[in-house]
């Protein structure tokens, strides 16, 4: 599979332009469309379709959660294979848990928590341990961010 497989060339161009960002102007989609030779209506229809199809997970303001008072962490848990879905049900029940992945290795369930206080995070982790009975849980908050880039180059780079 190559980057952007299943997308047309026009889709790739539009997604790359959107990843570069749009401006706080009255008609931002008209402006994006103009860069690509699309009308505003065409750009809007394509963006709605790409959101519907799942290629776009989110469209809008990318917020720096720390700047508005949120605090986050990454946690890793050692969950026996046969208990993963049960543990995930407990972990995922908190709206503050934003991502949760199974990864290879002895610590196999990795999730992120975003909340308004460190105390709330502690409370959530405590509840997860209590409800799952699993004690092996690492809390690995970030100390320093060197890079966050959420865009993917869909037009070859390889």
């Amino acid at each position: 599979m190559t980057p952007g497989q299943g997308l047309t060339e026009a889709d790739r161009q539009l997604l790359n332009a959107m990843q570069e960002g749009f401006l706080p102007v009255p008609n931002p989609f008209k402006e994006i469309g103009a860069r690509l030779g699309l009308t505003e209506d065409e750009a809007i229809a394509e963006l709605r379709r790409l959101k519907e199809s799942g290629a776009i997970r989110r469209l809008g303001a990318i917020i720096d959660s720390r700047k508005i008072g949120y605090t986050g962490t990454l946690c890793a848990m050692k969950v026996p294979g046969e208990r993963i879905s049960e543990a995930a049900a407990v972990i995922n029940s908190f709206p503050e848990v934003t991502h949760n992945y199974v990864r290879e290795g002895e610590f196999n369930v990795w999730f992120t928590v975003l909340a308004l206080s460190a105390a709330r995070i502690q409370e959530i982790l405590h509840t997860i341990k209590r409800e799952t009975g699993i004690r092996e849980l690492l809390n690995l908050p970030a100390r320093r961010i060197f890079k966050i880039r959420v865009s993917f180059d869909l037009e070859g780079e390889r």
Partner: peptide, 17 residues
């Protein structure tokens, strides 16, 4: 800096990554 950008987040699996 509260808003980093106005942009899209892609679902990486759906775009081939």
């Amino acid at each position: 800096g509260i808003i980093r950008r106005l942009s899209v987040a892609l679902r990486h699996q759906n775009v081939g990554f």
